[in-house]
Design a protein around this nucleic acid. Structure first.
Length: 596
RNA sequence: GGGGCCGUAGCUCAAUUGGUUAGAGUACCGGACUGUCGAUCCGGGGGUUGCGGGUUCAAGUCCCGUCGGCCUCGCCA
């Protein structure tokens, strides 16, 4: 070991000891010939090193040349700083190390940006110099939290007889779901592996194989467009159990979540976590992942809307749409007319809403440019339905049902944040259960699986599979935390007859099913136990527990929105001979220009 | 595939209606200083205004294209 201590551990009790510290020069304060201070930093903290070297001008000259981010090693004596000189903002602030030896292990170029300060440089630069960015305390903290979570997860499952089993990264492409990342085969010209979107099929096969308690911290890949909370490669805490029912999984994960949240954030969550049906949250919040840190539920005002003379509302109702609204309590003066007419209208427009109606409540009446279309009784009905009081701002969207849901759910989240309706440090976790098994896809004119094709239909809804598929509930469940899908799973089909019924419903022919998932179906024919599972999005959990809203800040080496790694330069062209080995010819735009 | 924001010194930003030598803070370099901890003081260097084209007497500013980053709708079984 080159060091005796880290930069975060020296305290008053070490005074008098001779120590050796290693680290990066965080800052330096040069007071001339005989006095130089250096804050030495490593992952554990910072320690002030003082060079006070009347007797040794050689060290002094070296110390005065130190610059930020140089890597040095110092040996010296731990000293109490003195009563007036302690730095309460530093964990090691009581002491300093008076150096009598200094080695510069490596000098640094001037860093491309400063590690401290409120103004972060743009992300492009941070990503290009990731090794510098990762030295910053917030990112170090995030990766530490990430480690704590995976560690707690492993402890939790290991102590319950689970086995951590790896599944292949090079697998078979299954064309349903997200776009696959493909890997060409050298020895099978024209054939490709796919990187896993999730270990779904493998973990089900592990159940068939008798490994009745499995988990894995699994890397997954999806070649879809990115978002602030989505990366092309991400990590799932993947779990599967045999001989269990839905509630066994929910209780297992309740326990895990409560333990992790308590351990990392010191917050005590209710156990069991509350459960809501899909139908319930869609009606009350317009989304299957409601943020329950605040109320402001959606209200249907079809009754008073139909009794009004407001053409927009009435024509929407006549064509089978809905009129719903939310009540922003006390916000009547918070949004100017201009903001409502432009900004918020455009905002709901992003979700397909053609307009945004609003009314302010004053003197027990509605104030609005459209109030005149609402007779007295309608106004009172709206006020009653929305539990409105003077000073409230009521916002309405009239449209097809799914558009009112999407627009109002988004608006609700935005208003909740802007009006500070909740404590950003608060935690709300809930289960959403009884999702529909399938949803009708207008484009392809057929049913799509809501979760995936191996998800078990609800026992009580089997008869509906043929008669009214859209009403069939699935034995599936999502864990929602602060409006974010934090885990998702289901009871799987282990009966090949039911599996066949679901394929029929999804319009997947026997041939097609064999071609796509034949190896799973074959496995299910050789003694498949009842089984169920779930996957937790690790990256999102780290975001939730650190309070970050950017997934790149919880991943050591993330990719940009266009899926490039600015640090390494990936993706990049490869040598022609590599392509020849893989039997691949490219058809890039550049190439075609050259061809012409 | 669609919509939006951004790109000026190493970094964060400013630059009036299109106007003459593109500024500030910080970092960096040199000097002074024995108790600093956002050290202080003095001095200095540093610009292809992302790139290409256009309009104009004149472009950081206006227009078109392009590259890159971010947010978002669609997409993500």
């Amino acid at each position: 070991m080159l060091r005796t201590h880290t930069c975060g551990e020296l305290r008053r009790e070490h005074v008098g000891q001779t120590v050796t510290l290693c680290g990066w020069v965080h800052s330096y304060r040069d007071h001339g010939e005989n006095l130089v201070f250096v804050d030495l930093r490593d992952r554990y903290g910072k320690t002030q090193v003082v060079f006070n070297t009347e007797e040794d001008s050689r060290i002094d000259a070296l110390a005065r040349r130190l610059r930020r981010e140089d890597v040095i090693r110092i040996a010296g004596e731990v000293r109490y700083r003195g009563d007036d000189l302690v730095n309460p903002r530093l964990a090691t602030g009581d002491i300093e190390v008076r150096a009598h030896e200094l080695t510069v292990d490596s000098s640094s170029r001037t860093p491309p940006f400063e590690l401290e300060g409120s103004d972060l440089p743009n992300e492009e630069l941070r990503l290009r110099y990731r090794f510098v960015d990762l030295r910053r305390e917030p990112l170090q903290r995030n990766l530490i939290v990430r480690h704590q979570i995976t560690q707690a997860v492993r402890d939790y499952f290991n102590s319950r007889d689970f086995l951590e089993i790896e599944t292949p990264m090079l697998g078979r492409s299954t064309p349903e779901g997200a776009r696959d990342y493909l890997v060409p085969s050298r020895v099978h010209p024209g054939s490709f592996y796919a990187l896993p979107q999730s270990p779904q099929i493998y973990k089900q096969i592990l159940m068939v194989a008798g490994f009745d308690r499995y988990y894995q911290i699994a890397r997954c890949f999806r070649d879809e467009d990115l978002r602030a909370d989505r990366q092309p490669e991400f990590t799932q805490i993947d779990v599967e159990m045999a001989f269990v029912e839905r509630d066994d999984i929910l209780e297992l994960i309740d326990g895990l979540v409560c333990q992790v949240v308590k351990q990392v954030r010191g917050i005590e969550l209710p156990s069991p976590l509350p459960r809501y049906s899909y139908a319930d949250v869609m009606e009350r919040f317009g989304t299957d992942k409601p943020d329950l840190r605040f109320g402001m539920e959606l209200v249907d005002i079809a009754g008073p809307a139909a009794a009004s003379d407001f053409g927009v509302f009435r024509s929407v109702l006549d064509s089978g749409g809905r009129v719903r609204g939310i009540n922003a309590k006390g916000a009547a003066d918070r949004y100017s007319r201009r903001l409502l007419d432009r900004e918020l209208k455009d905002f709901v427009g992003e979700y397909g809403a053609r307009g945004l109606a609003y009314m302010k409540v004053a003197g027990g009446k509605l104030e609005s440019t459209i109030a005149k279309f609402f007779p007295e009784q309608s106004q009172q009905d709206i006020i009653e339905l929305m539990q409105a009081e003077d000073g409230d701002l009521l916002l309405f969207v009239a449209d097809q049902a799914d558009i009112t849901s999407a627009a109002l759910a988004a608006l609700r989240n935005r208003l909740g944040r802007e009006l500070n309706l909740y404590d950003p440090d608060a935690f709300s976790a809930l289960w959403v259960v009884d999702f529909p098994l399938v949803t009708w896809n207008d484009e392809t004119q057929r049913y799509d699986a809501e979760h995936h094709p191996f998800c078990q239909p609800h026992r009580d809804d089997r008869d509906l599979l043929t008669s009214d598929p859209a009403r069939v509930r699935a034995d599936s469940y999502d864990l929602v935390v602060n409006g974010c899908e934090a885990a998702s799973g289901s009871v799987r089909i282990h009966d090949s007859k039911i599996q066949q019924q679901v394929f029929d419903l999804l319009n997947i022919s026997e041939q097609e099913a064999e071609r796509r998932f034949g190896f799973l179906l074959e496995a299910l024919r050789y003694g498949a136990p009842p089984h169920a599972g779930i996957a937790l999005g690790l990256d999102r959990w780290v975001m939730l527990l650190t309070g970050d809203d950017n997934i790149r800040d919880v991943i050591a080496f993330p990719k940009t929105q266009r899926a490039s790694d600015l640090l390494s330069g990936a993706p990049a062209p490869v040598d022609d001979h590599q392509l020849r080995d893989l039997h691949i010819r490219t058809d890039s735009p550049d190439q075609s220009i050259l061809d012409e």
